[in-house]
Each structure stands twice: as structure tokens, then as C-alpha cells.
Amino acid sequence: MESNELRIFKTVALEGSITKAAQILGYVQSNVTARIQQLESELKTPLFYRQRGMVLTPSGEKLLVYAEQILHLLEDAEKALDDSINPSGSLAIGANHTLSSLHLPAILSEYHKAYPKVDLSLITGNTNELIYKVQHFQIDGAFVKSSSISDENIIKELAYEENLVLISSSKYNDIQEVYYKPFIMNTVGCPNRFQLEEWLKSKGIFNIRYMEFNNLDSIIEGVVEDLGASFVPESSIEEYEQLGLIKSFKIPQEYSLAKTFFIRHKDSLKTNALQKFIEIIESKTSFHSIINSDYNSLKTLT
């Protein structure tokens, strides 16, 4: 069993398709098919059900766990040998859409200027998508809201708290007028959206209409144009409110307090590149280090 075979197997397993795996790996489909068949022959067990895509058999599910661990260890070995005082190599960071547009661009720019040898990439997605990528060693770390999984393999490195406010066009002065407007929010899975729904339910409002924008700037501009209301970090609308373009309304802290954590897999190598990134985040934002890295108290939002 070779590492390249495991890499092909893992890609097919995650994509559920020979065609997609071949495209990602840059191989012809027949080569991928042959390598999977060779691996099954070597292990003397089928690894996939071949019905409407490639679905893992129980043996395939077992092998995937080991394949991810083996490939991760090989990648970590390369990183460890290549790590130096001056950060280099790759660094893949995940973030939700709101954080990626509000806090990170300036920080990423400063990091790139300080450490130009690092191949930096930013992957955006919702909380559950980012957690999955951390679990499977697809990214080095991610910023997620205070919702997660009971997984002892994931630790949190930093924490940040912010207040969310209800916002509307400046023409509205009474919060009651805002309750029944469409809400411009991220898609399902956004913790801010979950908190908004919980608060509206406490007001007896269950029929909520949404307009889904996955970009904070677009959300705010939509509110300015009176397309609807929204529920966003207070820091994101300060200038708009000062210019009289937006009206904000505070709601009880039990619904408005939002926490963001930087998470990583406990078995991932904390490279010099990642350590320097964390140091810049701490120095430029209100993120602070967490001494206790127990992450099990956080529960997944569904």
C-alpha cells in the first residue's frame, strides 16, 4: 500500500466520484479506477459500493480514518523538516463570510507583507463546513462561531466576543416596524441567523422571510436600500450609522452576544507560519489566547 494509492483512495472517498477525483488529482479516470481496484485487490476487500457514485463500504470507512492519519503525518513530516525561523510553505485558513470581510483582509495583507514566503490561502464557508475541513486536515485552522462539535481532536486557540445589533433603513425609528420585514442574512447554518430566530421566537414571531446574501457588505448595502433588515456585528455598521444611512436597535445580550473561536486539529503541526499568524491576530484584534483548550462544551448548530 503506497501513499499515492491512499491519496487517490481518500480523494475518491471524499468526492464520491471517480470523475471528480480524477479532475482534482489531474489523472485520467481509467488510472484512478485501476488504482482503486489494485488497492482493493491488495487488501482483499471491496472499499466502495459502485451505485450512483462511489460510496464507502464498512471496510472503506475504516481505511479512510487511517488514510487521513497517514497522509497527514507525511505532510506534517515535510512541514517539520522545512519549518524554519523565517516562515514559509503553505498556510490555509478558514473563516465564515462575515469575519472574512470584516476583520481579516487587513490582517492577511499585513501577514503577507511580513512573511512573503508563505503561500497563504483563505477558505470561506459556514461553521459546519469549516469544522469538517479542520477535522479532515484540509485546512490548518479556522475561525468559527460559538457552535461546534463534541470532538476531543479539535482545540480552540483564540476567542473573540462581539455584539450583534438589529439594523434597518434609517427611515424606521420603532423596532416594532422592523420585526416583520424580510431579513437579509447568510444561508442556513449561520449562527447569527440562529440567534436572530431565537430572539424573534421569544417575541412570538415564527414566520420569518429571508433574502440570502453571503457577503456582509452586500447585506449592509441591501439594508441601506431598504430591501430588508438584518442582524450584524455592531462594529460593521458604525460608519453607516454615523452617516445616517442605517438605524440600529440593541436586543438582550442573551441573543446578541456572539463568540468566535480559532480552532485547529490537536494532531496538526503548529508550524512557525501558523504561530506567526496567531500572533498577528492577537496583536491586531480583540482575539485573546485561551489557556484551556477543551472544546467539548460547544455543540453543533444544525
Rank of each mutant, 00 (worst) to 15 (best):
93 I>R: 10
87 P>N: 02
95 A>G: 06
137 F>V: 02
102 L>D: 09
106 A>N: 05
129 E>P: 10
136 H>N: 07
111 Y>R: 01
98 T>M: 12
105 P>H: 06
136 H>S: 04
115 Y>M: 10
113 K>I: 15
99 L>A: 12
106 A>I: 08
140 D>C: 06
137 F>E: 05
137 F>Q: 05
86 N>S: 08
124 T>K: 07
98 T>E: 06
114 A>M: 06
117 K>E: 14
139 I>T: 09
86 N>L: 11
100 S>Y: 06
118 V>S: 04
118 V>K: 04
113 K>C: 14
124 T>A: 07
117 K>H: 14
114 A>P: 02
128 N>M: 07
129 E>Q: 15
115 Y>S: 08
87 P>I: 01
142 A>Q: 07
139 I>P: 01
102 L>N: 13
109 S>A: 14
128 N>T: 12
117 K>I: 06
104 L>S: 11
136 H>F: 02
94 G>Q: 07
119 D>Y: 01
117 K>R: 14
118 V>P: 05
94 G>N: 13
108 L>R: 13
133 K>E: 07
130 L>N: 04
141 G>C: 09
97 H>G: 08
106 A>R: 11
133 K>S: 11
118 V>Q: 03
87 P>F: 00
112 H>K: 13
105 P>M: 08
123 I>H: 14
124 T>H: 05
120 L>S: 03
121 S>H: 09
93 I>Y: 10
125 G>Y: 03
115 Y>N: 12
114 A>V: 04
108 L>I: 13
135 Q>C: 00
95 A>I: 07
106 A>V: 08
122 L>W: 01
86 N>F: 12
114 A>E: 06
103 H>S: 14
107 I>S: 05
101 S>W: 08
107 I>A: 09
101 S>H: 12
111 Y>L: 04
116 P>H: 00
